[in-house]
Nucleic acid binder design. Sequence first.
DNA 1: CGCGAAATTGACAAGGGTCAATACCGGTGG
DNA 2: CCACCGGTATTGACCCTTGTCAATTTCGCG
Lengths: 241, 241
Amino acid sequence: MSDRKDIHNSDVPVLCRSCEARHKGICGALEPTELTELARHTHVSRFETGRELIGEGTPVETYGNMMRGVVKLTKGLEDGRRQVVGLQFAPDFVGRLFAEESQVTAEAASDVDLCRVPKAALEKLIADNPGLERRLLLQTLRELDEARDWMMTLGQKTAAEKVASFLHLIATHIDPSARGEGRAAAFDLPLSRADIADFLGLTIETVSRQMTQLRKDRVIEIQNYRHIVVADLRRLLARCG
Amino acid sequence: MSDRKDIHNSDVPVLCRSCEARHKGICGALEPTELTELARHTHVSRFETGRELIGEGTPVETYGNMMRGVVKLTKGLEDGRRQVVGLQFAPDFVGRLFAEESQVTAEAASDVDLCRVPKAALEKLIADNPGLERRLLLQTLRELDEARDWMMTLGQKTAAEKVASFLHLIATHIDPSARGEGRAAAFDLPLSRADIADFLGLTIETVSRQMTQLRKDRVIEIQNYRHIVVADLRRLLARCG
DNA sequence: CGCGAAATTGACAAGGGTCAATACCGGTGG
DNA sequence: CCACCGGTATTGACCCTTGTCAATTTCGCG
């Protein structure tokens, strides 16, 4: 609301000028004029850790663009079993396109800054901007690849391999310096043991035991539950099955 | 090759006129002229059961449109473990868009008729046909939804629930009459026990035992390994967790 | 310092995997 | 038409990985 009045007479809205995701994610496909138009409907919200962005079976009213943080997507069964079906990081687009209601619960796994835009406004913009639609298609394809990779992990890997795979996934996503070939990585886990268990289809206890085993085998160091140091990512990768 | 000479002076190529998928799948987004243009590059192939359409890590040269049959998508680990990560039915589009090489193996689970089109030709058509890109986006979103549903099954459900879920999935996809609310269904399984096991993250033996249990509980009848009759889909659904 | 939540550890149980024997189906040839 | 054969599915006995339940430790925070 209050953010909006200062954006009119400028090529690129101020909000967007300082946005890290300006040239990444979907906004990279937009011209300044389109960005200005979009920004008229846009609203940046902060979600504290644990807050729900949208619930499973709930009507979708806005889409969002992640500016900071980690979002977890979960599905639940009536009896309380839960499965984490995806993690999203900046500058990912958040929200199931064209769906009346969400098939998943989206929850802030860390504090999250989200640039929200009403469903209709974005869909209108998509309709006459092929570049935007292309970017959304590419992200969807990437998410599908990731989901299928994870199906392999869920269906075939042992508990030890699952935990190693999870740590490797997080390390490469969170610690940018770690990307370049089998080097070291240090990071804070964005998920509790309970969330990790739900992600891997294991129990908290099994996750804990496997983490301990990796620590004893000197593959990882555990500083204080959340903070992990991996000396050599190749050794971790070797345990991913 | 030989099919092609008779398509020129006609609004809609003959091949397409008799194609069940003409108005479904991606072709529904095409004007007759575009369809004609596309059909110039198009080639219908039959794949016998078990034949590989494309291998994991293999360069993608063509996309395809399924006209008949069932395709299974699998990923493998070096040591031989395999996971089925998706099933496709007519009139699905087959092939990972924009990828240099396939991340999955696609294999004919039954005899399959596939309308193939070279990668470049389709991508060119996509570039100036927003309707086509939209359809592809919609299918990709649907596949993502399905993948996430299956992650729930793989990660959280018991063996009994997994097998029931699989049978329910196949019943609703193969037997069209069964779609309408908790009715009966009869169908041939398009997958061997080994494939079902790889789909569910179980062993052949466990799949077999759970099928037997469902038969003993009168939820299903097993005519001859492949042919299944479900008297009441609601009773099956009740076992899906 | 002390409390509550989260994580770890341990003892035990069970679901599903492994290995091996048997049964069944579909096709081929006598 | 029937007998045989190979591949596929079922069944059974046993065992291992992971889940369950409970006790203990550690962390974060007032």
